[in-house]
């Protein structure tokens, strides 16, 4: 008996999004990073094309986040300077690009000013030559003030700016159009809102081919399950021809892993769970591997050991 052909035939292609601009392209990056372009699900190379493997963005912040010592120590004292931290990410951890978050701009952290944030962007751009992802602090009001300044400071560098939501998309579209950046469209673990934000971006005149989707990220339990299924469903929908869902996807693996108890509490709190030194980075690496299967294209990661492990997984599977 002939074995039936079970290959899926997808009708469409995920958008290819390039981040960063070289000198010839009006920026100062040594190289650009391109994600997306798939015509099939992850790893199914017999079914279609996967022209660009997933990439790792090193988590860097203007101010050290509220992280456990296990992670801070692994990164080293450089964590106190965004410039040195970014350099270490590129030179030692081997990341493909930098994801810079303005943690310190949060009014409840340091309330750093828009000018301070813009200075950090400029300094990091000078210190490393990889493409840059720039995030606000997560406080919406404050982000509306800092993102325009950060965007301007990186004008022409073709950064990926995060993030546009239903509430603030007009501002983000305006600055990204003016300064020639790409946009991260964000939805709170909700595929319907994810699609709606993309519709709004399109209505505001932004080309969806310059958008990366962010469904927030979870590192445990139901949350991880929800995000996984959303990423996967968005991907299959995009491959079936829904142009509104054909964007590459980004996950903040580092940012989320180091917020859950299971990855930050040591054996004294969680007896029998093993040493945090080993468990934490393992948790982060596994989390990234999970989202890789769901179809994520950019993983933001923090722990050098997790980055190394995930790089191994990527090399073996890609």
């Amino acid at each position: 008996m002939e074995i039936p052909n079970v290959k899926e035939r997808w009708t469409s292609k995920i958008n290819e999004v390039t981040i960063g601009a070289t000198k010839e392209q009006g920026g100062t990056r040594a190289k650009t990073i391109t994600v997306g372009g798939q015509t099939t699900l992850p790893f199914l190379t017999f079914e279609g094309e996967i022209p660009n493997p997933a990439v790792i963005a090193g988590f860097v912040a203007d101010t050290p986040p509220d992280w456990p010592d296990v992670l801070k120590n692994a990164i080293g004292s450089e964590i106190n300077s965004p410039v040195e931290w970014a350099q270490k990410c590129v030179q030692e951890f081997g990341v493909d690009l930098i994801s810079l978050k303005m943690v310190g701009a949060d009014p409840s952290v340091k309330d750093a000013s828009p000018a301070d944030c813009a200075k950090v962007v400029q300094d990091v751009l000078k210190a490393v030559d990889v493409p840059l992802i720039i995030w606000g602090c997560g406080d919406e009001e404050k982000d509306n003030l800092i993102l325009p300044e950060c965007s301007q400071a990186a004008r022409g560098e073709n950064c990926l700016i995060g993030s546009a939501k239903e509430s603030n998309y007009r501002t983000v579209v305006a600055i990204c159009k003016a300064d020639k950046h790409k946009i991260i469209s964000e939805a709170p673990v909700d595929i319907n809102i994810g699609k709606q934000v993309n519709i709004l971006l399109q209505d505001a005149g932004f080309d969806l081919k310059d958008v990366v989707m962010f469904q927030t990220t979870a590192a445990l339990g139901y949350g991880l399950d929800y995000v996984y299924t959303i990423l996967e469903r968005a991907r299959t929908t995009g491959l079936k021809g829904d142009k509104l869902m054909a964007a590459p996807q980004i996950c903040d693996v580092g940012g989320e892993t180091w917020r859950i108890k299971e990855a930050v509490a040591d054996e004294d709190v969680l007896p029998g769970w093993g040493k945090l030194e080993k468990r934490g980075p393992m948790w982060e690496a596994v989390c990234a591997a999970v989202y890789l299967q769901a179809g994520a294209d950019i993983m933001i990661m923090a722990h050098p050991e997790a980055i190394k492990r995930f790089q191994n997984i990527l090399n073996k599977l890609s």
């Binding site: 699609k195 709606q196 519709i199 399109q202 209505d203 829904d242 509104l244």
Partner: peptide
Amino acid sequence: IYADSYVEAFRK
């Protein structure tokens, strides 16, 4: 996939 503007989005 449902989105609030699904009708308008189809005609864009």
